[in-house]
């Protein structure tokens, strides 16, 4: 099966502080991969390197076999990303922001913009300026932007931030559907129950290092649930 995302000995150091150390990941096409860790574990830093926003201190990131660095970002055209609270042009409406993004992709037309707005249930608010959006609405718009160009890899950092339980369920179902359609999903989340429900494999990161990685069913052997596993692994570290 095609490896969509691979990191090798990935390391990031800010001054004396090592934020990420020896992160090795390999994620195949159609996988829904959970990336777990407490606050400050290095999840967002790892995602920053995957998306070419941060310079790795060592190691490399490959997407579909192409190396990604801040200088080489061509393969990112196959990636959709939602990082923390997504940023948008505040004086434009949600729809206008998506139209602007769609300009980057020749194959994305106005019909597709309406399609993704409907998918994230944002059609009614699409004409409003983004500066008036709630956190949950920005999150929905961020998801719409991430899937707009039908990416092969989705990198999502806390995608259900600010969403109500119904919204979280809708997003969970949407991610599962996308994975079933062959989209590879790299999901960073604090919500262990959510990750346990939808992910095929997970990695647990703490203090910049991967402490456990494998299929959810395999890792859960002898453990009550993912939360118990997570607590045990983090406590050991």
């Amino acid at each position: 099966m095609t490896v969509v995302l691979q990191t090798r000995h990935l390391r990031k150091q800010f001054g004396d502080f090592v934020a990420v150390e020896h992160v090795d990941l390999s994620i195949s096409e159609g996988e829904l991969f959970g990336f777990l860790g407490p606050n400050g574990a290095g999840k967002t830093t790892t995602i920053g390197m995957i998306l070419g926003l941060l310079h790795p201190s060592a190691g490399r990131v490959e997407i579909l076999g192409e190396e990604i660095t801040p200088e080489h970002t061509d393969a990112l055209r196959h990636v959709g990303a939602l990082v923390s609270t997504p940023g948008f042009v505040p004086y434009l409406s949600g729809r206008e922001n998506l139209h602007l993004l769609a300009r980057l992709y020749p194959d994305v037309d106005r019909g597709r913009v309406e399609e993704v707005l409907k998918l994230v249930a944002l059609q009614e608010a699409a004409a409003r300026k983004v500066r008036g959006y709630s956190t949950g609405m920005k999150q929905r718009l961020g998801l719409a932007a991430a899937i707009l160009h039908r990416p092969r890899l989705l990198v999502l950092d806390e995608p259900t931030n600010g969403l109500d339980p119904i919204g979280m369920k809708e997003i969970r179902e949407m991610l599962r559907t996308l994975a079933d359609e062959g989209v590879t999903i790299f999901l960073s989340s604090h919500l262990l129950h959510e990750v346990e429900q939808i992910c095929d494999r997970v990695a647990i990161l703490d203090r910049g290092r991967i402490l456990a990685e494998g299929e959810v069913s395999h890792l859960l052997q002898g453990k009550r649930d993912l939360e118990a596993l997570f607590m045990a692994v983090v406590a050991q570290s």
């Binding site: 998306l51 801040p70 970002t73 990636v79 990303a81 990082v83 940023g87 042009v89 505040p90 980057l104």
Partner: peptide
């Protein structure tokens, strides 16, 4: 401030 630099660069726009 709006974090739109991330938005464009994470989509493969060369710096």
């Amino acid at each position: 401030r709006w974090r739109t630099v991330q938005l464009w660069l994470s989509r493969g726009a060369a710096r």
